[in-house]
Nucleic acid binder design. Structure first.
Length: 321
RNA sequence: AGCCUAUAGA
């Protein structure tokens, strides 16, 4: 059973939920009885693949089989609902775990906030966060907000344009002595991007670095987007430079942000230069990038170029939406 | 052997 559980979790790690399911069935065919770890590993594989409805089915099957769900099994199921953007289901699971006498912990609340985040329910996420904080009032309580809790609510607020709320959370994080990390930084910078606060994005970057956070690709990409959205294409290109000097390889997100920044202010020439650079680095442009460039050609009245891009896109079999 | 978080795009 341990061997099969390991195999299933290995499948989960590579996103192969169908393989995971096969192993599970094979195991049962051998007459072995799955335990809570086996079930949780399978649910985790489904969660990572975004197969939340199947995850719920497997959980039910586990209960029917008389296997008691523990906290990690519940938490994994909540996470599966989060990946399926099913916050109401996630909420009801927390209720049912309480009924079953399993007390939700920090990870449970974090997963629940993540479900809210995915559904744009920033107020619900804040509500859950408030619950975590009040549990943490008791110095004995292990249930209290950690870095991931903050990151999740900050992201929930930031995504919905609640910049103020995100900043309040950031300050509270500092006050409470909860360490920030690269995820905090990229979430905050992205919150700035949503509302066009590119100067604050730069400031946050500087602050984070002062606090020992070493920005990663996500952080740089967020910064480039924030600058681009703010019409600061030159600063976006400068950030792109810095990113490469820091040793990060740009990806399709980087170029997408840069190209759209240049389409807005830096001119079509620069945008198409970046497009060529991207291809020369072996990064496959996607349909959105083509669409954006084609629109830009159209605005510049360059129909030949637009047509050339369109043919190229068809030749590469890229979906145009 | 199993649980939670972040980035772009008309």
């Amino acid at each position: 059973v341990v061997t099969y559980s390991s195999l299933i979790s290995a499948c989960a790690n590579v996103g192969a939920w169908e393989r995971a399911l096969e192993f599970f069935q094979q195991m049962e065919a051998c007459g072995l009885v799955a335990n809570v770890v086996t079930y949780t590993s399978l649910i985790s594989a489904l969660h990572r693949a975004g197969e939340w409805a199947r995850a719920v089915v497997v959980f039910k099957r586990m209960e029917v089989a008389g296997v008691q769900a523990d906290i990690q099994a519940y938490n994994t199921l909540i996470a599966a609902c989060a990946s399926g953007a099913a916050w109401e289901k996630a909420w009801s699971i927390v209720a049912s775990m309480r009924l079953a006498g399993v007390k939700p912990n920090t990870v449970s609340y974090n997963a629940l906030m993540s479900a809210c985040e995915r559904c744009g329910e920033w107020e619900r996420a804040l509500e859950v966060f408030g619950r975590l904080e009040s549990e943490g009032q008791d110095p004995q309580s292990p249930v209290r907000p950690n870095t991931i809790s903050y990151n999740t609510v900050i992201s929930a607020c930031g995504k919905e344009g609640r910049w103020e709320e995100a900043m309040v959370l950031y300050r509270s994080m500092k006050t409470k002595g909860v360490k920030m990390d690269v995820v905090t930084l990229s979430s905050l910078v992205s919150a700035c991007e949503k509302v066009g606060r590119w100067e604050d994005a730069l400031q946050l970057f500087a602050d984070a670095e002062k606090n020992g956070v070493v920005p990663n690709l996500f952080c740089f990409n967020s910064l480039i987007s924030a600058l681009g959205r703010g019409g600061q294409w030159e600063a976006a290109l400068a950030a792109f430079e810095r990113m490469q000097q820091a040793g990060f390889k740009p990806d399709v997100v980087t170029f997408s942000a840069l190209i759209s920044a240049c389409e807005q202010g830096g001119g079509f020439e620069r945008a198409s230069g970046l497009f060529d650079e991207m291809k020369s680095l072996g990064i496959q442009p996607n349909g959105y990038i083509y669409s954006g460039l084609i629109n830009a050609c159209e605005r510049a009245g360059d129909w030949d170029q637009a047509l050339r891009l369109f043919r190229e896109m068809q030749a590469e079999e890229i979906e145009f939406d």
